[in-house]
Design a protein around this nucleic acid. Structure first.
Length: 501
RNA sequence: CGGGGCGUAGCGCAGCCUGGUAGCGCGCCUGCUUUGGGAGCAGGAUGUCGGAGGUUCGAAUCCUCUCGCCCCGACCA
């Protein structure tokens, strides 16, 4: 019968973390590789997750006055050149379109023809093309602010790809705003980061650290980049969202000018901010276990699966009927603005059926057989704790939202506890090096708060020696006298060091 | 893009060294028996051996090239 000790996923996290991750993605049916290098197929179970993320984040953006729009996939090559640092940042990874048709060659095979006068790049991000529109739309301070967002795909020709975490094409949202004043743009930059933090913590149940990027980690062309960082179960950091204060750099490049209240011509102040399908990768790595995916209920493609106990050749009408009624009763509940989503799985494949749903990470599984029906009960299993118990059917229906909230909370608390257990303040260079040197695979170290003098040289040295980077200068890092973990010079603040995805 | 590993059935793999026309486990299909955490027995289907060239009477196997995946670096959301 049951092979109790066997995990649904091999290898386990401990055995081989990155292989485990690949297997979870596969076993949970979220996505698979496509025939196109570095690009993935997001399957319905994975895309539903993204749809829920889009739906919830979109509402939060709109609440702050942001409106959606859509800009071209193709960006004229010359546009990218409008901001010097921006070019440097993205030029190496651009897909370039040079032809506009195909013709039959000598051997009958199709060959590109009709060379374009100016090559087009497939957008790696849209600052420049949106800036072009903004400049047309802005003539008076009364036209500002412009608050835009677009849900789109972008392409960055990556050398090394991993499902959801880094693919050549990925889905994201990019917000772009233009403001009359510096302060207003800066406020918008932090406002959007706060929204990201709230979304990721409340909906994805991932605790995050908010902070500022160092100069070397900044978005190409930004004056300031702020971010949220989360800890994965291998103790590496994943940037889950970034928000950029672009100063007037792009306004100057794209000529976004307006007349201010004093009648003077001025450049606008712009921001941009983005989150991507990468968040799904983070969610997988934060919550899932050796039996597969675990999805926080608030973004789960479905909340409950009902598995009727089917007797082949017997009369199952009562069980099926009962399952349908249960589904209907559950769906009458609203869970954070969404109906409780219920799947019924009547496949007669024995215990494998249950494991399928374990691997897919559905929060709650229900087994429903004649015995339960006779007692007006359901047999419930929670994915997060693996707790299983028989419950009164009506209690279950009435409390489903509480159960889901409870799962959501416990996932967050578990992740928070994990992060706290693996976060240290270190003041000795020896200790710092010792900790990260032994870090391999699953033991990728920790989050370490240490003093940093602010020099690029020290940042580089630590990166070179240990593959550890400054993830951010946390906003809540207090002013405090100390000495740089690398060079020993005076420092007034601790920064967050970690290995990163 | 540098270094390493790997592409054989839906999934996981063996076969390759020493060339002779493809196998195992799981899954899938059929039947019977089962059914409350990965069911049992019996029968069955499934492969252009990643692709293209080459060597050879004959290539999954040897050679060349190519594409893709994974790991370690560099780079990046």
């Amino acid at each position: 019968m049951a092979k109790k000790n066997k995990t649904a996923i091999t290898p386990t996290r401990e055995e081989d973390y990155s292989q485990w991750y690949q297997e979870v993605v596969k076993a949970s049916d979220l996505a698979e590789n496509s025939p196109v290098r570095g690009c993935m197929v997001i399957k319905p179970w994975g895309y539903a997750l993204w749809e829920n993320i889009m739906h919830d984040m979109d509402a939060m953006f709109k609440e702050t006055g942001v409106r959606n729009a859509y800009f071209p996939l193709f960006i004229p090559l010359s546009y990218l050149e409008k901001e010097a640092e921006h070019v440097d940042g993205f030029a190496k990874e651009c897909a370039v379109v040079t032809h506009h048709k195909l013709e039959k060659g000598k051997d009958g095979k199709l060959v590109p023809a009709g060379e374009l006068a100016e090559p087009l790049i497939v957008r790696p991000t849209s600052e420049t093309i949106i800036g072009e529109s903004m400049s047309k739309w802005t003539s008076s301070y009364r036209d500002l602010p412009i608050l835009l967002n677009q849900w789109a795909n972008v392409v960055r020709w990556e050398m090394r790809t991993r499902m959801f975490l880094r693919t050549s094409e990925f889905l994201w949202q990019e917000g772009h705003t233009a403001h009359a004043t510096k302060v207003e743009a800066q406020e918008r930059t932090s406002q959007m980061l706060d929204i990201y933090a709230e979304f990721v913590e409340k909906h994805l149940a991932m605790p995050v650290i908010r902070g500022q990027k160092t100069e070397s980690e900044r978005f190409p062309g930004a004056d300031d980049t702020i971010c949220i960082e989360a800890m994965m179960q291998d103790k590496r950091a994943l940037q889950a969202g970034t928000s950029h204060f672009l100063g007037q750099n792009f306004a100057k490049g794209s000529d976004i000018k307006f007349q201010n209240e004093e009648g003077q011509e001025a450049y606008a102040w712009t921001t941009s901010w983005g989150t991507s399908t990468r968040m799904i990768g983070g969610m997988i790595m934060v919550h899932s276990d050796d039996d597969g995916l675990i999805v926080p209920p608030r973004v789960a493609p479905a909340h409950v699966v009902i598995m009727p106990i089917i007797k082949k050749g017997g009369d199952n009408t009562q069980v099926i009927e009962s399952a349908n009624l249960l589904k209907k009763a559950l769906k009458a509940n609203s869970f954070h603005g969404r109906k409780v989503e219920v799947e019924i799985d009547s496949r007669d494949i024995g215990g494998a059926r249950g494991w399928d749903w374990v691997k897919k990470g559905i929060p709650v599984r229900i087994e429903l057989g004649p015995r339960d029906i006779a007692n007006n009960c359901v047999f419930m299993a929670r994915r997060d704790t693996n707790e299983k118990k028989s419950m009164d059917r009506d209690d279950f229906i009435n409390n489903i939202c509480d159960i889901l909230d409870n799962i959501q909370d416990s996932l967050f608390q578990r992740a928070l506890q994990f992060r706290e257990d693996h976060t240290f303040s270190i003041d000795s260079k020896e200790e710092f090096y010792a900790l990260f040197k032994k870090a391999k695979g699953y033991e990728n170290g920790a989050f370490v708060n240490s003093h940093w003098c602010g020099s690029r040289e020290c940042e580089e040295k630590i990166k070179k020696d240990l593959s550890v980077t400054i993830r951010c200068i946390p906003f809540d890092s207090p002013m405090e006298e100390g000495t740089c973990i690398c060079c020993g010079n005076a420092s007034s603040k601790r920064v967050l060091f970690a290995k990163a995805y």
